Simulated scan of single mutants.
Amino acid sequence: MQTGHVVYKVRDLDAAVADFRSRGFVVEYGAVRRPKNALIYFSQGPYLELLVRTGMPRPVLRALAALPANPARRFNAWERGPQGLCGLCLEGKDKELDAVVARLHGRGLLVSPTRVDPHGRHLRYRAFFPADLDLPFFMTHFSVDPRPADLTHPNGIRSIAQVDLPLEGPRRTFVNRLCDDGVLRCVPADGTMRVVFDDGTELRGPGPGAGGRPAGHAGR
């Protein structure tokens, strides 16, 4: 699998979009009406998702919480957490996602959403959110690739060059076996979640940030 995208929790989506645009990034909302996220795409490699809320209705979260693996914990952590880096998604083919679900014995939530983006494209995919919050979540490639061709952001950045993800030993081994794309770097659990752009600037957090432990932000 490949490093798909990094989730950055925000308290105010419009303010976050304005902030990242002021830093020279091209940012687009995830939907035309009532967006819950915004995206900073790159032509190659992972992108950045600015997330203000998961969109999961409270009755659904309560129902999920009643399940043995309690997959709602991840969404609740994102909803209630502070602003900053808070999650990582690994992306691959359908058979790769199925293999991950099997290796984790299905402990988590498997969904098949569709999102209509501002360009009118229906983005279909499957996603798996493990019950283990320290693991990344997983998804298939979009049915339509939303990444723009040959994009250089106004600030000169063209890609995310590196993502540091803090994980303890066995989980680090598990993720390293799944993803060796040269972008993801699993670091010890006491390390810092970090996104490094190709110009050397970065977003950084003070602690673990894989699934439910949001990390802070040190900007450009």
Results as ranks from 00 to 15, higher is better:
residue 68 P to W: 07
residue 185 R to Q: 15
residue 81 G to S: 05
residue 172 R to K: 14
residue 19 D to E: 11
residue 27 V to Q: 02
residue 169 G to M: 12
residue 162 Q to Y: 04
residue 10 V to S: 02
residue 179 C to V: 04
residue 54 T to V: 00
residue 103 R to K: 13
residue 120 G to W: 06
residue 72 A to K: 10
residue 7 V to H: 05
residue 10 V to F: 03
residue 202 E to G: 10
residue 19 D to S: 14
residue 156 G to N: 00
residue 42 F to Y: 03
residue 193 M to G: 15
residue 49 E to V: 01
residue 27 V to W: 02
residue 162 Q to W: 07
residue 45 G to K: 02
residue 25 F to C: 04
residue 195 V to E: 09
residue 54 T to L: 00
residue 91 E to F: 05
residue 82 P to R: 14
residue 110 L to F: 09
residue 108 G to E: 05
residue 187 V to I: 15
residue 14 D to E: 12
residue 51 L to P: 01
residue 73 R to E: 10
residue 72 A to L: 08
residue 205 G to L: 10
residue 114 T to G: 08
residue 69 A to K: 08
residue 184 L to F: 07
residue 146 P to Q: 09
residue 39 L to N: 11
residue 151 L to V: 03
residue 136 P to Y: 05
residue 155 N to L: 13
residue 38 A to G: 06
residue 127 A to N: 08
residue 56 M to V: 14
residue 1 M to W: 03
residue 158 R to T: 13
residue 202 E to H: 15
residue 118 P to Q: 06
residue 199 D to R: 03
residue 48 L to A: 03
residue 76 N to W: 13
residue 209 G to L: 09
residue 141 H to Q: 11
residue 145 D to H: 02
residue 120 G to P: 09
residue 9 K to A: 00
residue 4 G to L: 05
residue 164 D to M: 10
residue 53 R to S: 12
residue 39 L to K: 02
residue 165 L to C: 04
residue 145 D to L: 04
residue 87 G to E: 09
residue 130 P to C: 06
residue 138 F to R: 07
residue 209 G to V: 06
residue 59 P to W: 09
residue 49 E to T: 02
residue 22 S to M: 11
residue 137 F to E: 00
residue 163 V to M: 05
residue 30 G to D: 02
residue 85 L to M: 08
residue 216 G to N: 15
residue 195 V to P: 06
residue 157 I to E: 00
residue 26 V to E: 14
residue 151 L to G: 00
residue 163 V to D: 01
residue 110 L to W: 08
residue 24 G to M: 03
residue 146 P to T: 06
residue 23 R to Y: 12
